[in-house]
């Protein structure tokens, strides 16, 4: 049931994903979520994901070695997804020192493997920065869990968010975001097999309810 309705391949499922900023004020913690994919528990009555032809977005991600095209051709195709985020930039948390910018994510898998999580930020389809993290499996309730907890955001991303937030109009922010993408590739560290590949694209949320998203399967038919 998960495979056609959530971000899940045959071997790995994304359970949660969030990018946030956090600060302490008057001994209280304030957390603002820029983007967030929460836990879900779909049933067979829920609709399956819509599809997008992967060729429509190849140029939005690095087309060099290790880019989306090469990865997709290697497969497996059921591991490839696109997430369109409507990011919430309406934070009233003050910027500056004492603010923590982080990314947390959680996955569950079917195998006791070590995963490598590569996050590539692309500007105009060219990679500008990459973070690679290694995670080990923890057995929990018969599943292998992988948790990246409060991974610090890089300087490039923090500066990017600062600049974006200070643009006066939302259409200007969307114009910048049109050429900003992130590719996350989770692979088996030993075999290099792709377990999950998520292409992120962005707009600014106009909702009062915070960050929103749509998930698509990437197909080639």
């Amino acid at each position: 049931v998960w495979q056609d309705r959530t971000i899940a391949s045959a071997k790995l499922r994304l359970l949660e994903y969030s990018a946030f900023m956090e600060t302490q004020r008057d001994r209280e913690t304030y957390k603002h979520l820029f983007v967030h994919i929460g836990p879900s528990n779909p049933g067979y009555s829920d609709p399956v994901l819509e599809s997008i032809d992967v060729r429509q977005i190849y140029d939005k991600f690095s087309e060099k070695k290790g880019g989306l095209k090469e990865l997709y051709e290697k497969g497996p195709h059921n591991a490839f997804f696109l997430v369109k985020f409507w990011a919430d930039l309406s934070s009233d948390v003050e910027e500056g020192s004492g603010v923590f910018y982080g990314v947390s994510s959680q996955y569950s898998g079917t195998e006791n493997v070590t995963i490598s999580v590569s996050t590539k930020v692309c500007s105009f389809g060219k990679q500008v920065v990459e973070k690679v993290e290694t995670e080990y499996a923890h057995l929990d309730g018969g599943k292998y869990m992988f948790r990246i907890h409060r991974s610090p955001m890089c300087e490039y991303m923090i500066n990017f968010i600062h600049k974006l937030k200070h643009l006066p109009e939302k259409y200007m922010m969307n114009s910048v975001l049109e050429n900003f993408t992130i590719l996350q590739v989770v692979s088996n560290r030993e075999t290099q097999e792709t377990l999950l590949c998520i292409a992120f694209v962005f707009e600014v949320s106009t909702s009062e309810h915070g960050a929103q998203y749509h998930v698509y399967r990437l197909v080639n038919d």
Binding site: E50, I57, D59, G125, T206, S207, Q212, H214, Y216
Partner: peptide, 25 residues
């Protein structure tokens, strides 16, 4: 470096939902 002119996302073959921000119910 130079940047290559890309086809705007609005001109690509994408589902209608791609442009519809979900509303919380």
């Amino acid at each position: 470096g130079s940047t290559v002119e890309q086809v705007p996302m609005r001109k690509r073959q994408l589902p209608a939902s791609f442009w519809e921000e979900p509303k919380l119910t």
